[in-house]
Computed example of a mutant assay.
Amino acid sequence: MTPHNELRLLPWTGPDGKPCYLSTDDEDSHLSRLADNAEALQLDLATELLDHVADVLGSDEPDLQELSALAAGLTEALRDTLCVAESRGHRLLAPVPEARADITEDPTLPAAAFG
């Protein structure tokens, strides 16, 4: 479950191109499900584009215009995939570090430590 103080990076941007975030503690809310579906569609499109790359590059003489369009599509798909990965990575529960007895409150070193 996403902590309520953690914002979820959504798989779309606002009208100004800036990232959109969702603040909710309900992973099953309408907007959360909409974001989940959008992420799934983006990942499916990336998979389809990868399959298409194999077909295009497997031909004897790939069309330059088709390669250009494919590169643009792959760029967008990679951007979307990285956004999905970032969003999902932020939603993983981070392990709580254990307190260590050997760490002091004063992080300074004596001058002799620097030679």
Score class of each variant (00 low, 15 high):
T13G: 09
P97Q: 09
L41P: 00
A40F: 11
L82A: 08
R33K: 15
T75N: 11
A40Q: 14
L7N: 05
F114N: 07
T13E: 12
E76N: 09
D25Q: 09
G17S: 06
D28T: 07
K18R: 15
P107F: 07
D51N: 14
R100N: 08
G73H: 03
P107V: 05
T108I: 02
P97W: 09
S29I: 02
V56D: 05
L34E: 07
D44F: 07
W12L: 02
L9W: 02
A113H: 12
A113V: 05
R100G: 03
D55V: 14
Q65P: 00
L31V: 14
S23W: 07
A72F: 09
T75Q: 14
L7E: 06
T47V: 08
V56Y: 05
V53K: 07
L7D: 04
P107L: 06
H4R: 11
L22D: 01
R79K: 10
G115Y: 12
S32M: 09
L78C: 09
D63M: 01
R8D: 01
R79E: 14
D25H: 10
A35M: 02
V56K: 03
L43C: 06
T108R: 14
A35L: 02
L41Y: 10
Q42L: 13
G115L: 13
R8Y: 01
A46K: 10
S87G: 13
A54K: 12
C20S: 08
L22S: 01
T47M: 08
C20A: 09
K18A: 10
L82I: 07
H52A: 09
A35G: 00
L43F: 05
N5W: 15
D44A: 14
N37Q: 14
R8I: 06
T81L: 03
L93K: 14
G17W: 06
L10A: 03
P97Y: 11
E98V: 08
V84A: 06
R91V: 00
V84C: 05
A101K: 15
A38Q: 11
D80I: 00
F114K: 08
